[in-house]
Write a protein that binds this DNA or RNA. Structure first.
Lengths: 201, 201
DNA sequence: CTGATACTAGAATATGAATTCAGATATGAG
DNA sequence: CTCATATCTGAATTCATATTCTAGTATCAG
């Protein structure tokens, strides 16, 4: 019943990702995506109602793919000072293995990609956000015995913002972060989480 | 000899900045800028050859304005562990005083703003880059006794990337960073610069 | 083999924003 | 007061892309 699809949704996402990695999100046109995949533009619109929806769903797939392994590591983190090492390393690992997706996630704000998130994807986006937020709260509780705004912010800073900061410059320049940066990030994240006299976030 | 100008270049830059802060760079059209200033679109083109040039020069003005006070602080940094405190604080100070410009600088890559930097501005951009690079090298020499790639990278990470990382999330959400983050950043930057057994960047 | 279906095709159209252009206006010099 | 000149205006034009549309094609059920 019906012709067999020549391209999968993921084919379109992958092609879009490559174009964005190469030319930047702003310069990524539907015609570019179609050409990258060797498909006509009409096919893109057969799958996706609009450019907006294509980008929104690609963004979602990317967030999901990053979060999946990351949440596992975050939940399994061992006790003590080294508790932050694995999550930080996980970010580096993921970036090395998925440079194009990392570029999408680290170098673009969702807002600049999709002005108004379509309804369907929007719901999933909220879910993903909540899941991550919950994981950080759990981590904060484990680590600091509380999960107020300040504690969660500090955890986010140490486990996400710091590795992102280390990586971003290099991704932007089109390369991967040098090995040494990983060690530095691990060490820095530990310091950010260490208890000391300083007032909390 | 000739009519007096009604708007200065800076008027246009400021208007552009406000539009970008409000709607994002991608959504910033020439018509928006003109409306924001209460000028007709033609006037924009009387001053700037293209949208590209307008954005390029705004970007430059912004980098220049950030660097000027920052370089002073960087050069005057005191000796010892606290050597990194002032530069980090300077970033926070500047962001609080210039939230719109900070948003431009922290939330957008130059490449996404201007695909191809026009020649004139391009030359100044290179100069600004070199100046900052030199300042970091000098800092690295003072601090580590060397200014190789790894040392400079580490300094950049501690003095720029870390405060940026702390601030970025909040700027994106449309607010300023909470006070506590400044202390955390200062502390974290110190750790990133501290000598220890770990291999360098 | 045949019709129904779900997709591929890419030319044609619509849309929105950048850019141009043909005056209109203000200012200073003489 | 008038000319020369620099600047301003905003409607008209051009351009780049998103989006739509009409046709063609492969696959499956019967």
């Amino acid at each position: 019943m019906g012709r067999k699809a020549k391209f999968t949704d993921d084919d379109f996402f992958d092609a879009t990702l490559r174009v964005i990695a190469r030319e930047g999100a702003a310069a990524c046109t539907i015609a570019d995506v179609a050409a990258e995949l060797g498909a006509p533009v009409g096919s893109v619109y057969h799958r996706f109602a609009s450019r907006e929806e294509l980008l929104a769903r690609l963004w979602l797939r990317t967030v999901r793919r990053f979060q999946e392994p990351y949440l596992v590591v975050l939940g399994a983190a061992t006790q003590g000072d080294a508790e932050s090492d694995e999550p930080v390393r996980a970010v580096f690992r993921w970036v090395r293995q998925h440079p194009d997706e990392a570029q999408l996630l680290l170098l673009h704000r969702r807002r600049d990609l999709v002005a108004r998130m379509p309804d369907g994807p929007g719901a999933e986006a909220a879910t993903l956000n909540d899941t991550l937020e919950e994981a950080f709260k759990a981590y904060a509780r484990r680590r600091f015995g509380r999960a107020d705004r300040a504690a969660v912010e500090r955890v986010t800073f140490a486990l996400v913002d710091i590795p992102y900061a280390a990586i971003r410059r290099h991704l932007g320049a089109g390369g991967l972060p040098p090995r040494g940066l990983e060690a530095l990030s691990v060490r820095t994240a530990r310091a950010a989480l260490a208890e000391d006299g300083t007032a909390d976030t």
